[in-house]
Structures are given as C-alpha cells and as structure tokens.
C-alpha cells in the first residue's frame, strides 16, 4: 500500500462524560517524527487509543499506513509497534519467554534483533520483568517494539519518568530507527525538550482541541517572545499576539507570524520561543489574552 501520511486523522470526535475530544484533524507524514504535545488529560492517550482502534470515536475516521483503522485493522496491525507508559507484560515473565510469545504473534518478529537490543540495553534475559527498574522496563518495551520491523512506532508518554541519561539513550535509538525513510514515529509527551531534539513535526492539543500542528522548525521560527515594558504592548499588532504574560517588571508577549512580522518590531528584542513556551502561551491565552505570574 502506497501512502504519503502514516496517520491521517479526519474530524474524529469522542464524547465522554465531562470530556470531549475533537473534532480533531491532523496528519503524520511518512518518514517523520511527530511530537504529540499536551498537558495531562489533554486527550493524547484517547487519540492514541482511537488510532489503535481500542476506542470507537463518535464520528470521524482514521487511516493508519493507508488503511482504515476500523474496517482494515488486520492489514496494518503487524506493521505498527506501540510503547506504553508502563510495561504491558506480566511481571512474572522474562525476556526469553516474551520472545517466544511474540514470535508467535508477529509475522516479522526477529529474535536476533530482539536479543541484540537486550544486549545493547544491558537487559538480562532470564530475570523476571517485575524485578526490572522503570528505565529497564521502558528499554525492554522499546526492544520489543523495534524487533518486528514495524513501519510506525507509536509511543504514549514513553520517556516520562525516565532519567535524562536513559532518555538520551532512547532518543539515539529512535534516531537510528528513523534512518529508514519508511519509518514514522508518533510520540506523545509532555516533556518538550525531548521532542525539540528529535521531532520533525509537532501537534499541540489542549482539552481535546487542536491548538497547533505543523513542522517543528516552522512553528519555532514563527513564534517569538517580546520582552517589553507595559507601554510597548500598545505598539504590538493585536492580530500577532498569542497571549501576554505580565510580571512586576513588565511583560512577555508571544507573537505569531514572526517571520513575516518581525520587521514591524525592529525596535524590540524578539527572543526565540521553545515548544514549552508556545504550549504555555497558547494554553493560557485560551482563558484570557493576558495573564500574570
């Protein structure tokens, strides 16, 4: 199946008591690392569950690797790998047993690759998974995810709770995985520093609604923060403002369309914004244009 987008989410909506996801639309291009960013409870896991066809959206449709996620589920499930925030294997099992189990589940399971990753991550083959540390469990999940030649790797808060050394090690592994242009990663996280390192595209969601989706570099280039005094705020075009953070010494104004409007504010210092800043200013801007710390 030829496809340009590894994932196409089209107007999906899921209504729960007290929470509504969507209508949400975005795409994850093939060969791209998509960072899926949002606060806890923003709807990231719900979206991932919808992609995996574990929950049924009230409306909308999803295509995964070119196949409909509901009606053609069988055709793509062998080609995707999922990493959850906690280990989905029984704690009494060990790596050898998991290899034997998954060998019979995935058509393209490669024991050699699996044991290669175990060795690389210094994971014991006979030790019970229950005795693994949190970092070891995450490494183990990643080893299983990368051992059946999956074209799409979906990670739900996979690096949360890991120390910086292990996170960096994992990011290196993902970089290697992305050497194959057929491979795609959707990585949900609220640790944006990881995504700034490896993501090509970023999608922000908040309270089940899409805030922003696009190429990371474009998003970072298009946003900036003007550190200024109160009086200068009036000089800034309303249409360019995302939101304003006031403090005792002045204000920080996040502007969008920085590349086009940058010359307008030549008199001010426009700092680069991080993904964290962008998320923060957009989220706070939803409740009011101005906020104070």
């Amino acid at each position: 199946m030829d496809y340009t987008n590894a994932i196409e989410i089209n107007q999906i909506k899921k209504v729960y008591d007290g929470f509504t996801l969507g209508a949400l639309s975005f795409t994850v291009p093939k060969g791209c690392v998509m960072g899926f960013v949002g606060q806890n409870g923003a709807g990231k896991s719900t979206t991932i569950k919808a992609i995996l066809n574990v929950i049924k959206p009230n409306s909308g449709d999803i295509k995964v690797l070119g196949f409909d996620s509901v009606t053609e589920e069988k055709q793509y499930k062998d080609d995707i790998a999922v990493v959850f925030d906690s280990l989905p294997f029984h704690e009494g099992l060990n790596a050898r047993k998991v290899d034997r189990i998954l060998k019979s589940i995935y058509k393209k399971w490669n024991s050699e690759v699996f044991f290669h990753y175990l060795k690389r991550f210094n994971l014991p083959e006979k030790k019970k998974l229950g005795d693994f540390s949190k970092g070891m469990k995450m490494k183990f999940q990643i080893a299983t995810a990368l051992s059946h030649d999956a074209k799409l790797l979906i990670m739900d808060e996979a690096t949360s709770g890991l120390d910086p050394v292990v996170r960096s090690e994992m990011l290196d592994v993902f970089m290697e995985y992305m050497q194959d242009e057929e491979h795609t990663i959707l990585m949900s996280s609220h640790i944006t520093s990881d995504l700034e390192k490896i993501a090509d595209c970023v999608t922000f969601i908040h309270n089940g609604q899409l805030l922003l989706s696009g190429y990371k570099d474009e998003i970072l280039e298009n946003h900036g923060i003007i550190q200024c005094e109160e009086a200068y705020i009036k000089e800034i075009d309303e249409a360019d403002i995302v939101s304003i953070r006031r403090n005792d010494f002045g204000a920080s104004v996040m502007i969008k369309n920085r590349t086009q409007t940058g010359s307008k504010y030549a008199g001010a210092v426009v700092d680069s914004a991080s993904l964290d800043d962008i998320l923060l200013f957009y989220v706070r801007g939803l409740t009011g244009r101005e906020w104070r710390i």
Binding site: L52, K77, D78, S86, L87, P88, Y106
Partner: peptide, 18 residues
C-alpha cells in the same frame, strides 16, 4: 484478570491478533 491488570490486553488489541 492478569491480562487486564498488566495492560497486556491493551497490548494485544494494538497487535495483529483478531
């Protein structure tokens, strides 16, 4: 019950088992 508690059931749903 063990499958549900350990989230293996979720893993199985995301895998190629009908």
């Amino acid at each position: 019950e063990m499958d549900i508690k350990s989230k293996f059931v979720m893993y199985a749903y995301s895998g190629p088992v009908s």
